[in-house]
């Protein structure tokens, strides 16, 4: 399982990149969902999101999940490309599979890679 060390993580399996403000689903999350066939980003550029509020809805062949904002802040971009290519979330969760970009957010309170890895391991047992 891929858990990049430069990112921060939530218990609901989102990642946040403090450098770029991008938000996405973790490798663990995409693997759990398996083949993703639909993504709907429920916020738009310009919206102000609050931590823990829904930002996207994801459906795979067998499951459905909601994604939540890992941080509060202003949405400056959403990844429109995903809507026509939801499988990108499976293929490249930390790259082309980003969901939204948030400006000026405070990542304190999120897990670092080591903590998230431990958290994932606990759940697989």
């Amino acid at each position: 399982m891929n858990i990049p060390s430069n990112l921060m993580y939530t218990k609901s399996d989102e990642w946040f990149d403090p450098a770029t403000g991008k938000v996405g689903l973790t490798d663990y999350a995409q693997a759990q969902l398996s083949d993703i066939v639909f993504v709907e980003i429920t916020v738009s550029a310009g919206d102000v999101v609050e931590v823990g509020k829904p930002i996207a809805s994801v459906e795979s062949v067998k499951a459905a999940a909601e994604s939540y904002a890992p941080v509060s802040g202003k949405v400056i971009a959403v990844n429109e490309d995903l809507l026509n290519a939801p499988e990108t979330l499976n293929r490249d969760p930390y790259g082309a599979g980003w969901l939204i970009q948030i400006e000026g957010a405070d990542p304190s309170g999120l897990m670092d890679a080591a903590a998230y890895e431990k958290y994932c391991e606990e759940r697989t047992h």
């Binding site: 066939v37 639909f38 459906e59 062949v61 499951a63 459905a64 909601e66």
Partner: peptide, 13 residues
């Protein structure tokens, strides 16, 4: 197909 839209998976959503 697209069964994840339905109540048995998506429940209240």
């Amino acid at each position: 197909t697209l069964t994840a839209r339905e109540q048995h998976i998506k429940r209240e959503r």
